[in-house]
C-alpha cells in the first residue's frame, strides 16, 4: 500500500532521518558542520539537488534503461550539483568558499544517489518530490543541529553571534576533525537513547 505524500515527506524527518538513522552521507556531515550557517547552507544545497534530481529521475523513469540507470542518475545529479555550484558562486560566494570542495562532492553523497535509486526511479513525481524534500530537510536539520553543537562548544558562538562573552575559552577541539567524529558519535548515542524507548 503506497503511503500518502505527507507520510513520504514526514518519514525523512525522523524515521529515516539521515545521517542518524541511515548512516550515510557522512563526509559533508563531518566536514562542514563547524558552524550552524555552514551546516544549513550545505543542507539546503543538498536538499535542492535531492529535490531536483528526484523529480527529474521520476519524470524520466520510463525512458532510462535500467542497465545504465546509475550512469544516468550520476549525470542528472552532477548537472544539478553544478547548477548549485554556479548559483552559490553567484549569490553566496563566502559560503561557497567555506564549503569548498564539498559542494561538488554532493555528487557522490550516497543519500542523493540512494534516493534516486530507491525511491524516485519507482515512484511518480509528487511522492518523489515529497520524499526528496523530506529527506533533504531532515538532512539539513541534522547538519544544523550538529553545526550548532560544534559551533557553540567549539567557538562559543551561534550564527557568528558571541554567546558567552570574551572570558569564554572555546573548546576548539570540537571544530576540528576529532571533535566532529566524537560529537556525531555522541549525538547518535543520544538518538538511540531517545528513539529506543
Amino acid at each position: 500500500m503506497a503511503k500518502s505524500i505527507t507520510q513520504e515527506f514526514v518519514k525523512g524527518l525522523w524515521d529515516e532521518i539521515p545521517p542518524f538513522r541511515l548512516v550515510l552521507g557522512l563526509c559533508p556531515v563531518l566536514a562542514v558542520t563547524t558552524t550552524v550557517e555552514n551546516g544549513l547552507g550545505m543542507g539546503l544545497a543538498t536538499t535542492f539537488v535531492l529535490v531536483c534530481s528526484n523529480m527529474l529521475v521520476s519524470l524520466l523513469r520510463d525512458i532510462i534503461p535500467s542497465k545504465v540507470r546509475i550512469a544516468c542518475f550520476i549525470v542528472i545529479i552532477a548537472t544539478f550539483v553544478t547548477v548549485v555550484e554556479l548559483l552559490m558562486q553567484a549569490f553566496t560566494y563566502p559560503l561557497f568558499l567555506k564549503l569548498g570542495i564539498f559542494i561538488p562532492l554532493i555528487v557522490v553523497n550516497c543519500i542523493v544517489l540512494g534516493r534516486s535509486e530507491a525511491f524516485a526511479f519507482k515512484n511518480p513525481v509528487m511522492p518523489s518530490l515529497a520524499d526528496g524534500l523530506g529527506i533533504g530537510i531532515g538532512f539539513t536539520l541534522s547538519l544544523a543541529a550538529l553545526g550548532a553543537v560544534r559551533e557553540i562548544l567549539g567557538s562559543g558562538t551561534f550564527f557568528n553571534i558571541s554567546l558567552f562573552g570574551p572570558s569564554f575559552q572555546p573548546f576548539s577541539l570540537m571544530v576540528e576533525a576529532p571533535g566532529a567524529f566524537i560529537c556525531l558519535g555522541l549525538m547518535l548515542c543520544i538518538m538511540n537513547l531517545v528513539g529506543n524507548k
Binding site: P178, G185, L188, C189, N196
Partner: peptide, 22 residues
C-alpha cells in the same frame, strides 16, 4: 553501553584515532 553500541562507538573511536593524527 547499549545506546553507544555499533556506529556510535565507532564514530567516537574514529574521533580518538583522528586525534592521534592531529
Amino acid at each position: 553501553p547499549k545506546p553507544l553500541q555499533d556506529t556510535s562507538i565507532a564514530l567516537v573511536t574514529a574521533g580518538i584515532l583522528s586525534l592521534t593524527f592531529y
